[in-house]
């Protein structure tokens, strides 16, 4: 059984690097990560925040979801759009960039949050709130060869 386990583990290790090998066919590579924001107050009363690995998280904690993109090809790509559905267990943080393009209806309609509305079951309409956001989206006209960047959004665990 131990030998079998080792074989299995070895195959798993091999299998993981194999996935990006297929992705090299794409001009763009995306790499996602998530960090937790922990704030602490020192003896002088100054509040500092730091990004830490999200090993322990509970409702109310703040997470930063990031996506690094790289154009690893030798040609410029155009109409570069990165779409990120929000996990339903989190809400967009209220201090997110107000210019961020978002959707509050599962990706059907897009705009800045202040321009969007939500219709309730009784047909009434109200201004969209951060907690209503279902997707965030970034659009770049073009990404040059070798260009890379990072896209982030802050979220609070519901």
């Amino acid at each position: 059984m131990k030998l079998l386990g080792k074989i299995c583990a070895a195959l798993m290790v091999i299998a993981i690097p194999a996935a990006p090998a297929f992705a090299q066919d794409n001009a763009i590579e995306l790499s996602g990560d998530v960090m937790a924001v922990k704030s602490s107050t020192d003896a002088a009363g100054n509040e500092t925040t730091e990004l830490v690995e999200p090993t322990v998280i509970v409702p109310g904690d703040r997470l930063i979801f990031g996506t690094d993109y790289t154009n690893s090809s030798d040609e410029t790509v155009t109409n570069f759009v990165v779409t990120n559905p929000l996990p339903s267990a989190v809400a967009l943080a209220v201090d997110a960039d107000p210019a961020l393009i978002v959707s509050v209806d599962g990706g059907q309609n897009w705009g800045v949050l202040s321009a969007l509305t939500v219709s309730s079951e009784d047909g009434a309409s109200r201004s969209a709130q951060h907690a209503d956001v279902t997707h965030v989206r970034w659009t770049l006209a073009s990404v040059a060869p070798g260009e890379s960047g990072r896209l982030e959004y802050p979220a609070i665990i519901r």
Partner: peptide, 17 residues
């Protein structure tokens, strides 16, 4: 808040030409 044990999974998708 959300139940303990809930998995939060995030995936971004890019489209381009």
């Amino acid at each position: 808040g959300v139940d303990a044990g809930t998995l939060i999974e995030n995936t971004a998708t890019a489209t381009y030409v």
